[in-house]
């Protein structure tokens, strides 16, 4: 009996009624250039004072090299580096990843789970930054208020290193 109770309790804890989540779509555009390298990219959430509320993704070269597995060029993600990237001890589970080719990427972040964690109610900005070797650098920002009572759709359009960025906030 006690065992059954435990199991029920565990189930209840593991599957909250409906976990609030962020569904993010990031487009890395194709570049018509002779020398192409996949961009480094970082995704994070800033509080209104621009401090980092959550590090969501860092895509950089994972290849081992004498210069440190691609970490040498991380400061090129200038804003991310300054706002908190340099505080991280890389690689971070669930955050670090390989660079991505051109395409559309869907990412889901669940409230209460790594890497999002629990966002306190307040105003935030989701930031996507991309920097490409011998290419350009671009930052796209999506301000939002958390939590939401109904699904909210936000989007922004990059112009060079990033394409469409859209964010669905689900209660």
């Amino acid at each position: 009996m006690r065992r059954l109770l435990c199991c029920t309790l565990a189930l209840l804890l593991a599957t909250p009624l409906a976990a609030a989540e962020l569904d993010l779509t990031v487009q890395i555009p194709e570049q018509k250039v002779a020398e192409y390298h996949r961009p480094y990219a970082a995704i994070w959430i800033e509080r209104s004072d621009r401090s980092v509320a959550a590090q969501l993704a860092a895509w950089y070269a994972q290849k081992d090299s004498k210069e440190g597995a691609g970490t040498k060029w991380l400061p090129d993600l200038r804003q991310w580096w300054r706002r908190g990237g340099r505080e991280l001890s890389l690689p971070v589970d669930g955050v670090s990843g390989a660079t991505r080719p051109a395409g559309q990427y869907q990412l889901k972040f669940v409230d209460g789970q790594a890497p999002l964690g629990t966002l306190a109610p307040g105003d935030y900005t989701l930031v996507v930054e991309a920097a490409r070797e011998v290419g350009g650098r671009e930052v796209v920002r999506l301000p939002f208020t958390w939590p939401v009572s109904a699904t909210q759709h936000l989007s922004a359009q990059g112009s060079s290193e990033l394409g469409a960025v859209s964010l669905d906030l689900n209660p």
Binding site: K66, E67, G68, A69, T71, K72, P75, W81, R86
Partner: peptide, 10 residues
């Protein structure tokens, strides 16, 4: 040549 660097042996 740079004021912000990173990596294993910058």
């Amino acid at each position: 040549s740079a004021t912000n660097v990173a990596g294993a042996d910058p």
